[in-house]
Simulated scan of single mutants.
Amino acid sequence: MTGPHPSVAAIRNAVRESLDGCDIGTRVWVAVSGGPDSLALAAATGYVGRKEGYLTGAIIVDHGLQAGSAEVAQRAAAEVKRAGIHTVFVERVTVGRDGGLEAAARNARYAALNARIDEVGGHNPQAPHRPHHG
């Protein structure tokens, strides 16, 4: 068998498709939870970024809701760097209770992601409703 495993190829193709229309040199962000799905997405984004000429970065949100969450976030950051993405931010957020814990955590996460993207610039293919920023 030559080339990557079919599942690796599929996620790389999905990343390429989501970035279709972005210019070379676009800063592309991936949100990473530290779970296997988001780490696979980060690895694919790093690979596609290197091949297509994008500047890739990862944003990890530490909700602080579980004991050891800071360590989990740091392990995720290390894994992302091993996957070839070297611009990594770990954002610690405070989660309120409005709308229930899950909704409050989601709102805090999106606010942290959007604030970092607004500050640094770039595009988050996981949030296509957000405009591209140079």
Rank of each mutant, 00 (worst) to 15 (best):
M1P: 01
T2E: 12
P4N: 14
H5F: 07
A9Y: 02
A9I: 10
A10V: 07
A10H: 07
R12M: 13
R16T: 12
E17W: 05
S18Y: 03
S18N: 12
S18R: 13
L19R: 08
L19I: 10
C22Y: 10
D23V: 12
D23H: 15
R27L: 07
V28A: 06
W29S: 02
V32P: 00
V32L: 01
S33I: 00
G34N: 03
G35Y: 11
S38N: 05
S38V: 05
A43C: 02
A43L: 06
T45V: 04
G46Q: 07
G49W: 04
R50T: 11
K51G: 04
G53Y: 03
Y54P: 04
L55T: 12
L55F: 04
G57M: 03
G57Y: 05
A58T: 08
I59M: 03
I60N: 04
I60L: 11
H63E: 05
L65I: 10
G68D: 04
V72H: 04
R75V: 11
R75W: 01
A77G: 02
A78H: 12
E79F: 08
E79A: 15
V80K: 04
V80Y: 13
R82K: 15
A83T: 07
G84Y: 08
G84I: 13
H86P: 10
H86T: 14
V88G: 07
F89S: 14
F89R: 14
V93M: 11
V95N: 01
D98E: 15
D98T: 13
G99V: 02
E102K: 14
A103S: 15
A104M: 07
A104D: 05
A105P: 01
R109L: 08
N114M: 09
A115E: 09
I117L: 05
D118N: 11
E119L: 11
G121K: 08
G121V: 12
G122I: 11
P125W: 11
P125L: 12
Q126V: 00
P128C: 04
P128R: 13
R130C: 01
P131V: 10
G134P: 14
